[in-house]
C-alpha cells in the first residue's frame, strides 16, 4: 500500500524500519505458515519412512532377526528328517513319498518347514511392532507426534505398514536362505511367489495391527514382552507352521482352524510347493485362505485405527 515499503527480505532484525515503513507494519516475524498438505497420507508416509530408515540403517538388527529362522531351518529342519524316519521302518521309496505327500503335502519336510518359517519371521516382526510404540511413548516421540495435527490413525497405520514392509523383506531373505539350504524350488512360479507373499503381507499387517493396538496404552516394555511371549508361541505352535494339522489331536485341530496364521501358511504352501499329487483334504481351497486372511487384516486394522482415536488421547 505504501510505495516506500521495504522489501520483505530487508526487514531483518537489525534494520531500523521505523523511518521508512509506516508504524502499522509489524516488527519482523518469521515467515507465515505455508499452505499445508492436509492429506493423512503425508503424515503416514513420514512416520513410516522414519521407522524404515532406522531399520535399514542398522544392518545388525536385520542380521539378528535372521538368526532365529536360520537356526530353525538349519538345525531343527535338517535334524527332523522324516524321510529317513520312514525309510528306516522298511518302506520302499514310493511308499515313503506317498506317506510324506499325504502328511505334509510335499516330499520334503524341510520345504514344508521353510514355508512355516516365512510365517514365523513375519509373526515375530509383527509382535515387535508393538514394542516400537512402547519405545516411542517411553522416549516422548509419541507425545511429540500427538501434539501435531497428524491423524491419530496414521500413527497406528505407520507402525503396521513399516512392520509389513520389513517382514516382507525379511521373509524374502528367509526364502533365499531356505532355497540355499535345499528347499524344493521345482514348483516356484512368479504368480505363486506373488500370491504367497501377498498372503504373508496381509497376515503381517493383521498381526501388527493386533500388537500395535495392544501396545497403544502401554509405556512398559516388560508387559509388552510378556504379551509377545504369551501370544507368539501359541500362535506359532497352534498352527500348521511346524507340523501338519492331520497328526494333531482333535482338540488342537480346532484351535489351528481358528488361528489365522494357519490360513496364510496353508495358502503359501500351495502356491510355493504346488499341489501335484497331493491328496485332497490336505489343503483348504485357495479362495478360503485369501478370504480369511484379507478379512482378518481389514478387521484388525480397523480395530487398531478406531482404538487409536480412543486410546491415544487420555
Amino acid at each position: 500500500m505504501d510505495s516506500s515499503k521495504v522489501p520483505e527480505e530487508k526487514l531483518t532484525r537489525t534494520t531500523t524500519v521505523q523511518e521508512t515503513v509506516p508504524e502499522s507494519v509489524e516488527p519482523p516475524v518469521p515467515r507465515s505458515m505455508p499452505k499445508l498438505n492436509k492429506s493423512p497420507l503425508h503424515g503416514l508416509w513420514a512416520l513410516t519412512l522414519r521407522d524404515l530408515r532406522k531399520w535399514y540403517t542398522n544392518p545388525y538388527q536385520l542380521l539378528i532377526s535372521l538368526i532365529q529362522p536360520v537356526v530353525w531351518l538349519g538345525i531343527f529342519g535338517k535334524a527332523l528328517n522324516f524321510g529317513t524316519f520312514i525309510s528306516q521302518s522298511g518302506a520302499s521309496p514310493a511308499v515313503q513319498n506317498q506317506i510324506l505327500l499325504s502328511t505334509f503335502g510335499t516330499k520334503s519336510y524341510f520345504s514344508f518347514l521353510s514355508v512355516g518359517m516365512l510365517a514365523s519371521i513375519i509373526l515375530f516382526t509383527a509382535a515387535f511392532s508393538g514394542m516400537s510404540v512402547v519405545f516411542d511413548r517411553r522416549f516422548g516421540f509419541l507425545n511429540k507426534a500427538l501434539s501435531t495435527p497428524v491423524s491419530r490413525g496414521a500413527i497406528v497405520v505407520s507402525k503396521v505398514l513399516q512392520s509389513g514392509v520389513r517382514s516382507l523383506i525379511q521373509a524374502g531373505m528367509v526364502l533365499l536362505i531356505a532355497v540355499v539350504l535345499g528347499m524344493d524350488v521345482s514348483n516356484f512360479s512368479v504368480i505363486g511367489l506373488l500370491g504367497a507373499f501377498t498372503l504373508l503381507f496381509f497376515m503381517g499387517f493383521a498381526l501388527s495391527s493386533l500388537f500395535v493396538t495392544l501396545a497403544l496404552r502401554s509405556s512398559d516394555w516388560q508387559t509388552q514382552m510378556a504379551i509377545i511371549n504369551l501370544l507368539n508361541l501359541p500362535l506359532l505352535f497352534a498352527s500348521n507352521a511346524l507340523f501338519p494339522v492331520k497328526i494333531m489331536p482333535t482338540w488342537l485341530q480346532y484351535v489351528v482352524k481358528f488361528n489365522p496364521v494357519s490360513y496364510a501358511i496353508d495358502g503359501a504352501r500351495q502356491l510355493l510347493l504346488g499341489t501335484a499329487g497331493v491328496p485332497s483334504g490336505i489343503y483348504n481351497p485357495l479362495w478360503l485362505d485369501f478370504t480369511v486372511i484379507t478379512a482378518f487384516a481389514v478387521a484388525l486394522t480397523a480395530v487398531g485405527v478406531v482404538m487409536s482415536w480412543k486410546l491415544l488421547t487420555k
Binding site: 499452505k35 499445508l36 503424515g43
Partner: peptide, 13 residues
C-alpha cells in the same frame, strides 16, 4: 523435518 512433515508443511518450506 519430520516434525514439519507431521504438520503437513511441504519440504520446499
Amino acid at each position: 523435518l519430520l516434525c514439519a512433515d507431521l504438520y503437513g508443511i511441504p519440504r520446499s518450506d
